[in-house]
Protein backbone atom coordinates (compact mmCIF):
# COMPACT_ATOMS: atom_id res chain seq x y z
CA UNK A 1 0.00 0.00 0.00
CA UNK A 2 1.13 3.54 -0.69
CA UNK A 3 -0.40 6.27 1.45
CA UNK A 4 -0.01 10.00 0.90
CA UNK A 5 -1.20 12.15 3.78
CA UNK A 6 -1.66 15.91 3.41
CA UNK A 7 1.17 16.05 0.89
CA UNK A 8 2.19 19.41 -0.53
CA UNK A 9 5.12 20.26 -2.77
CA UNK A 10 6.67 23.66 -3.42
CA UNK A 11 9.31 24.56 -5.96
CA UNK A 12 11.44 27.65 -5.66
CA UNK A 13 11.11 30.23 -8.42
CA UNK A 14 12.66 33.66 -8.69
CA UNK A 15 9.30 35.02 -7.55
CA UNK A 16 9.30 32.91 -4.39
CA UNK A 17 8.13 29.35 -3.73
CA UNK A 18 5.36 28.06 -5.97
CA UNK A 19 2.98 25.37 -4.72
CA UNK A 20 2.61 22.64 -7.35
CA UNK A 21 0.72 20.11 -5.24
CA UNK A 22 -1.47 21.13 -2.37
CA UNK A 23 -2.75 18.92 0.40
CA UNK A 24 -2.99 15.64 -1.51
CA UNK A 25 -4.49 12.59 0.19
CA UNK A 26 -4.24 9.35 -1.73
CA UNK A 27 -4.05 5.64 -1.07
CA UNK A 28 -2.98 3.08 -3.64
CA UNK A 29 -3.82 -0.53 -2.81
CA UNK A 30 -1.95 -3.54 -4.21
CA UNK A 31 -3.06 -4.35 -7.72
CA UNK A 32 -4.87 -1.09 -8.38
CA UNK A 33 -4.35 0.70 -11.68
CA UNK A 34 -4.56 4.43 -11.26
CA UNK A 35 -4.77 6.71 -14.31
CA UNK A 36 -3.65 10.32 -14.04
CA UNK A 37 -4.87 13.15 -16.22
CA UNK A 38 -4.20 16.85 -16.15
CA UNK A 39 -2.78 19.74 -18.13
CA UNK A 40 0.93 20.16 -18.72
CA UNK A 41 2.55 21.47 -15.58
CA UNK A 42 -0.38 20.47 -13.38
CA UNK A 43 1.91 18.35 -11.18
CA UNK A 44 1.46 14.87 -12.65
CA UNK A 45 5.15 14.14 -12.98
CA UNK A 46 5.81 15.79 -9.63
CA UNK A 47 3.46 13.30 -8.01
CA UNK A 48 5.31 10.47 -9.74
CA UNK A 49 8.63 11.80 -8.44
CA UNK A 50 7.28 12.09 -4.90
CA UNK A 51 5.89 8.57 -4.92
CA UNK A 52 9.11 7.18 -6.40
CA UNK A 53 10.99 8.84 -3.56
CA UNK A 54 13.28 10.84 -5.83
CA UNK A 55 12.12 13.93 -3.97
CA UNK A 56 10.70 14.42 -0.52
CA UNK A 57 7.42 16.32 -0.10
CA UNK A 58 7.54 19.84 1.32
CA UNK A 59 4.73 18.99 3.76
CA UNK A 60 2.96 15.77 4.68
CA UNK A 61 4.03 12.16 4.67
CA UNK A 62 4.33 9.36 2.14
CA UNK A 63 4.28 5.80 3.43
CA UNK A 64 5.16 2.83 1.27
CA UNK A 65 4.66 -0.78 2.21
CA UNK A 66 4.99 -1.88 -1.45
CA UNK A 67 8.19 -1.73 -3.43
CA UNK A 68 7.98 1.07 -5.99
CA UNK A 69 9.70 1.16 -9.38
CA UNK A 70 11.53 4.11 -10.88
CA UNK A 71 9.44 5.78 -13.61
CA UNK A 72 9.33 3.24 -16.44
CA UNK A 73 11.33 3.80 -19.59
CA UNK A 74 12.85 6.77 -17.85
CA UNK A 75 16.02 7.36 -19.89
CA UNK A 76 17.47 9.62 -17.21
CA UNK A 77 18.16 6.46 -15.21
CA UNK A 78 20.44 5.22 -17.94
CA UNK A 79 24.00 6.51 -17.73
CA UNK A 80 25.03 7.70 -21.18
CA UNK A 81 28.76 7.27 -20.62
CA UNK A 82 28.34 3.55 -19.91
CA UNK A 83 27.48 0.75 -22.33
CA UNK A 84 24.05 -0.87 -22.33
CA UNK A 85 25.53 -3.94 -20.66
CA UNK A 86 27.20 -1.90 -17.93
CA UNK A 87 23.91 -0.13 -17.27
CA UNK A 88 22.18 -3.48 -16.77
CA UNK A 89 25.03 -4.56 -14.52
CA UNK A 90 24.69 -1.42 -12.43
CA UNK A 91 20.95 -1.87 -11.91
CA UNK A 92 21.45 -5.53 -10.98
CA UNK A 93 24.09 -4.52 -8.44
CA UNK A 94 21.96 -1.90 -6.72
CA UNK A 95 19.00 -4.23 -6.46
CA UNK A 96 21.13 -7.23 -5.58
CA UNK A 97 19.91 -9.60 -8.30
CA UNK A 98 21.54 -12.05 -10.73
CA UNK A 99 23.03 -10.33 -13.70
CA UNK A 100 23.32 -12.99 -16.42
CA UNK A 101 19.65 -13.92 -17.00
CA UNK A 102 18.67 -10.26 -16.94
CA UNK A 103 21.31 -9.32 -19.47
CA UNK A 104 19.94 -12.04 -21.76
CA UNK A 105 16.44 -10.68 -21.32
CA UNK A 106 17.43 -7.06 -22.00
CA UNK A 107 19.43 -8.08 -25.07
CA UNK A 108 16.52 -9.97 -26.48
CA UNK A 109 13.79 -7.52 -25.58
CA UNK A 110 15.56 -4.33 -26.64
CA UNK A 111 16.92 -5.91 -29.85
CA UNK A 112 20.04 -3.82 -29.48
CA UNK A 113 22.40 -6.62 -30.59
CA UNK A 114 26.03 -5.58 -30.69
CA UNK A 115 25.10 -2.09 -29.54
CA UNK A 116 24.71 -3.48 -26.03
CA UNK A 117 28.47 -3.14 -25.76
CA UNK A 118 28.63 0.43 -27.04
CA UNK A 119 28.25 3.55 -24.88
CA UNK A 120 24.62 4.68 -24.63
CA UNK A 121 25.67 8.11 -25.87
CA UNK A 122 25.99 6.60 -29.37
CA UNK A 123 22.37 5.32 -29.35
CA UNK A 124 19.45 6.92 -31.15
CA UNK A 125 16.61 8.11 -28.91
CA UNK A 126 14.54 5.08 -29.91
CA UNK A 127 17.36 2.71 -28.95
CA UNK A 128 17.79 4.49 -25.65
CA UNK A 129 14.08 4.16 -24.90
CA UNK A 130 14.14 0.46 -25.77
CA UNK A 131 17.08 -0.11 -23.44
CA UNK A 132 15.47 1.89 -20.63
CA UNK A 133 12.19 0.01 -20.92
CA UNK A 134 13.87 -3.38 -21.05
CA UNK A 135 15.97 -2.58 -17.97
CA UNK A 136 12.82 -1.45 -16.15
CA UNK A 137 11.36 -4.92 -16.67
CA UNK A 138 14.23 -6.78 -14.99
CA UNK A 139 13.27 -5.96 -11.41
CA UNK A 140 10.08 -7.27 -9.88
CA UNK A 141 8.22 -4.42 -8.16
CA UNK A 142 4.85 -4.32 -6.39
CA UNK A 143 3.99 -0.98 -7.96
CA UNK A 144 5.06 0.42 -11.33
CA UNK A 145 5.21 4.12 -12.11
CA UNK A 146 4.47 4.76 -15.76
CA UNK A 147 4.97 8.27 -17.08
CA UNK A 148 3.91 8.47 -20.74
CA UNK A 149 5.60 5.18 -21.46
CA UNK A 150 3.98 4.31 -24.74
CA UNK A 151 5.45 7.36 -26.37
CA UNK A 152 8.53 5.24 -27.10
CA UNK A 153 9.58 3.09 -30.02
CA UNK A 154 7.66 1.92 -33.06
CA UNK A 155 4.26 0.20 -33.13
CA UNK A 156 5.70 -3.29 -32.81
CA UNK A 157 7.86 -2.38 -29.83
CA UNK A 158 4.94 -0.59 -28.18
CA UNK A 159 2.85 -3.73 -28.55
CA UNK A 160 5.55 -5.82 -26.90
CA UNK A 161 5.77 -3.30 -24.06
CA UNK A 162 2.01 -3.56 -23.65
CA UNK A 163 2.18 -7.35 -23.34
CA UNK A 164 5.09 -7.21 -20.91
CA UNK A 165 3.41 -4.63 -18.72
CA UNK A 166 -0.35 -5.05 -18.93
CA UNK A 167 -0.58 -8.78 -19.51
CA UNK A 168 2.34 -10.29 -17.62
CA UNK A 169 2.19 -7.72 -14.82
CA UNK A 170 -1.50 -7.00 -14.68
CA UNK A 171 -1.67 -8.02 -10.99
CA UNK A 172 0.75 -5.30 -9.97
CA UNK A 173 -0.26 -1.85 -8.83
CA UNK A 174 0.31 0.85 -11.44
CA UNK A 175 0.27 4.59 -11.60
CA UNK A 176 -0.14 5.70 -15.19
CA UNK A 177 0.29 9.23 -16.52
CA UNK A 178 -1.02 9.64 -20.04
CA UNK A 179 -2.75 12.00 -22.41
CA UNK A 180 -4.10 9.13 -24.45
CA UNK A 181 -7.68 8.17 -23.66
CA UNK A 182 -7.41 4.87 -25.48
CA UNK A 183 -4.53 3.94 -23.26
CA UNK A 184 -6.12 4.83 -19.95
CA UNK A 185 -9.65 3.67 -20.67
CA UNK A 186 -8.86 0.00 -21.06
CA UNK A 187 -6.24 -0.23 -18.31
CA UNK A 188 -7.21 1.74 -15.25
CA UNK A 189 -9.89 1.29 -12.62
CA UNK A 190 -9.36 4.62 -10.84
CA UNK A 191 -8.73 8.04 -12.30
CA UNK A 192 -7.21 11.19 -10.85
CA UNK A 193 -7.76 14.55 -12.47
CA UNK A 194 -5.30 17.30 -11.55
CA UNK A 195 -6.82 20.71 -11.16
CA UNK A 196 -4.85 23.65 -9.73
CA UNK A 197 -2.66 21.62 -7.44
CA UNK A 198 -5.32 19.33 -6.04
CA UNK A 199 -6.76 16.08 -7.35
CA UNK A 200 -10.28 14.92 -8.03
CA UNK A 201 -10.99 11.23 -8.01
CA UNK A 202 -13.30 9.43 -10.51
CA UNK A 203 -14.25 5.79 -10.99
CA UNK A 204 -15.83 6.30 -14.37
CA UNK A 205 -13.57 7.00 -17.29
CA UNK A 206 -16.23 8.83 -19.31
CA UNK A 207 -16.80 11.31 -16.53
CA UNK A 208 -13.12 12.04 -15.93
CA UNK A 209 -12.46 12.40 -19.64
CA UNK A 210 -15.36 14.81 -20.05
CA UNK A 211 -14.00 16.96 -17.20
CA UNK A 212 -10.47 16.70 -18.50
CA UNK A 213 -11.42 17.94 -21.96
CA UNK A 214 -13.31 20.80 -20.43
CA UNK A 215 -10.24 21.69 -18.39
CA UNK A 216 -8.19 21.76 -21.58
CA UNK A 217 -10.67 24.13 -23.15
CA UNK A 218 -11.62 21.50 -25.72
CA UNK A 219 -14.81 20.51 -23.91
CA UNK A 220 -17.59 18.55 -25.57
CA UNK A 221 -21.06 20.02 -25.90
CA UNK A 222 -22.48 17.02 -24.01
CA UNK A 223 -21.51 13.59 -22.77
CA UNK A 224 -23.37 11.99 -25.67
CA UNK A 225 -21.36 14.10 -28.08
CA UNK A 226 -18.15 12.88 -26.42
CA UNK A 227 -19.16 9.21 -26.59
CA UNK A 228 -19.98 9.63 -30.24
CA UNK A 229 -16.61 11.23 -31.05
CA UNK A 230 -14.65 8.64 -29.06
CA UNK A 231 -16.43 5.85 -30.83
CA UNK A 232 -15.54 7.37 -34.16
CA UNK A 233 -11.91 7.81 -33.14
CA UNK A 234 -11.71 4.20 -32.00
CA UNK A 235 -13.54 2.83 -35.02
Amino acid sequence: MITLQNVSKDYPTSAGPRRILSNINLTIEPGQHVGILGRNGAGKSTLVRLISGAEPPTLGTIERTMSVSWPLAFSGGVHSGLTGTDNVRFICRIYGVDFQPRLEFVKEFSELGIYMNEPVVTYSSGMRARLAFAISMTIDFDCYLIDEVLAVGDARFRERCRVELFEKRKDKAMLIVSHSHRYLQGTCDRFLLFREGSIEEYDDFREVYFQYKELLGEGFASREQMMHEMKQANG
Binding site: S67, Y95, G96, V97, P101, R102, E104, F105, E108, F109, M137, T138, I139, D140, F141, E164, K168
Partner: peptide, 13 residues
Protein backbone atom coordinates in the same frame (compact mmCIF):
# COMPACT_ATOMS: atom_id res chain seq x y z
CA UNK B 1 11.75 -15.54 -25.96
CA UNK B 2 13.21 -15.31 -22.51
CA UNK B 3 10.81 -14.83 -19.75
CA UNK B 4 10.87 -11.93 -17.34
CA UNK B 5 8.28 -13.47 -15.02
CA UNK B 6 10.88 -15.17 -12.89
CA UNK B 7 12.68 -11.96 -11.98
CA UNK B 8 12.03 -11.75 -8.32
CA UNK B 9 13.98 -11.90 -5.12
CA UNK B 10 15.40 -8.43 -5.55
CA UNK B 11 16.83 -6.87 -2.43
CA UNK B 12 13.88 -4.56 -2.07
CA UNK B 13 13.40 -5.25 1.58
Amino acid sequence: MLNSDAFSGALLR
